[in-house]
Amino acid sequence: MDILLVDDELDFIEPLAQRLRLRGYKARFATNGEALLDQLAKSPPDVLVLDWGMPGLSGPILLERIHTGWPTLPLVILSGYNTPKGLRQENWPQIREVLTKPLHFNGFLEILEGVCPSRGNTVPQQGDNA
C-alpha cells in the first residue's frame, strides 16, 4: 500500500513514515501543500493522510484541489482538534476518517487497512502495543 503523509511537523511525520515502512508499507511524506501537490501529480498514492492545520496551503484549500484533481483518492484527515475547524465530513465522501493527534498507532493502522486493504506485501508484526 502506498501511503502519502502530509504534515508540516517533520519530527512527527518522519518517524510515522518510518514506522509504516518498518511494517512494509510504502510510506512517503511531504511537509507542505506545494510538495504534496507535486507528489500527487507525479504519482498518486493509495491513501493520503493530510494534516488539516498547516501554514501556507492548509486543509480547506488542499481539500478543494485534491477533490478537483483526484476525486476518488481516499483521505484520512489529521487534526490537533477533535474536529477540524470548517470541515463537514459528510460533504466530502472521499474523507474516510478524521483523527486527532496524537495518534493511537494501532488504531491508525487498522483504519489504513480498512481504507485500503493491504495488497499482501506486508505482515503486521506481533507485540506492537502502541
Binding site: 511537523e9 519530527d11 512527527f12 518517524p15 510515522l16 518510518q18 514506522r19 518498518l22 511494517r23 490537533g80 482538534y81 486527532t100 493527534k101 496524537p102 495518534l103 498507532f105 508484526q125 507485540g127 506492537d128 502502541a130
Partner: peptide
Amino acid sequence: AGVAHEINNPLAVILEKAGLAQDILRL
C-alpha cells in the same frame, strides 16, 4: 482548548518517536 491543541503536537511527536524507537528495537 488552546493549550490542549498546542500540547497535542509535541505529544504526537513524542509518541511517534517513542513508537519508532520501539519499532526499531522490535522489528
